[in-house]
Computed example of a mutant assay.
Amino acid sequence: MSEMKNFFFDFDSTLADTRNVAVLSTQRAYEAQGLAIPSREAVVSYMGVPIEVSFAKMAKEDLSDQDLEDLYTVFRSQYHVTEQEGITLFDGIATALEQLTQRGANLYVVSSKHSVPLRRNLDQVGLNGTFAAVSGSDTVDHYKPAPDGIWNLVTRFDLDLAESVMIGDAKYDMQMGHNAGVATAAAMWGAADPDSVKAEQPTYLLKTPADLLTI
């Protein structure tokens, strides 16, 4: 297999450990709106899925479109506050990205997050200048596991699918990579449900960020 040149990274639980921030922000938003608070397990199980899809599913109540819009707004403001409490890069990520860059690889982020908080979070963890471009949920017509986020970047930068790999911690990332026609790499250091990720038969199974240098 040829050496990979184009690396598409998920952000949450792949580059950075954001699980506590996501759980707290979600629970606080539901509580602020007087709704039944989803369990930590429920929130974690939907990580990697845009809030536009997951929030209605996690709600015990029937919510109108306006209720949901209000919930998204409260969540985003909560996230802005909560992210100050701790988004951290996984050990070894910064070094691996630096070495990939030195190797001449092209690095991108494809996330279910909106581009604005995504860029803010990248800045916060010191990765602002590391990626050639980001693709957030606001830049696609169809969310993961649809291939839109990857294809947008492939088209924009004229990338070769055969030299491209999607790296993520969730089954949705693996499905997205398969649907886009690129290789897939499971970031097992952040996987909340390792079995569901392995079930997608990723091209590469990575135990630590240093393993990125082997693909």
Rank of each mutant, 00 (worst) to 15 (best):
M58N: 11
F55I: 03
K57T: 11
D67T: 02
L35E: 01
K60H: 15
E61D: 13
Y79P: 11
F55Q: 02
I37N: 08
Q66R: 05
L68N: 07
V43P: 03
A42L: 12
D67V: 02
R40T: 14
V81R: 05
S54V: 11
A56C: 11
Y72F: 13
A59E: 00
K60A: 14
D70N: 10
R76G: 00
R76L: 09
K57W: 07
G34L: 08
T73D: 04
E83R: 15
E85N: 08
A36R: 09
V74A: 05
S64W: 05
D62K: 13
T82Y: 12
D62A: 14
Q78R: 11
I51D: 04
E85A: 12
Y72K: 14
E41Y: 07
H80A: 09
I37A: 08
G48E: 12
E83S: 14
A59F: 10
I51C: 03
S77H: 05
V81K: 08
H80I: 10
S64C: 10
S64G: 14
R76Q: 03
D62Y: 01
L71F: 13
E83L: 14
L71H: 10
Q66S: 09
S39I: 05
L68S: 08
E83M: 15
M47H: 12
Q78A: 06
D62P: 05
M47C: 13
Q84I: 14
Y79F: 14
E31Y: 04
P50F: 09
S64D: 07
T73M: 09
A59P: 05
K60E: 03
E31N: 02
D67C: 04
V49Y: 10
A42W: 03
E41M: 08
F75P: 03
M58I: 11
H80G: 02
K57S: 12
E41F: 10
D70W: 00
T73A: 14
Y46H: 01
Y72W: 12
Q33M: 15
L35K: 07
V43S: 01
E69K: 12
V43K: 02
P50L: 10
Y79W: 14
I37R: 15
P38E: 06
L71D: 02
A42C: 07
S77G: 07
A36Y: 04
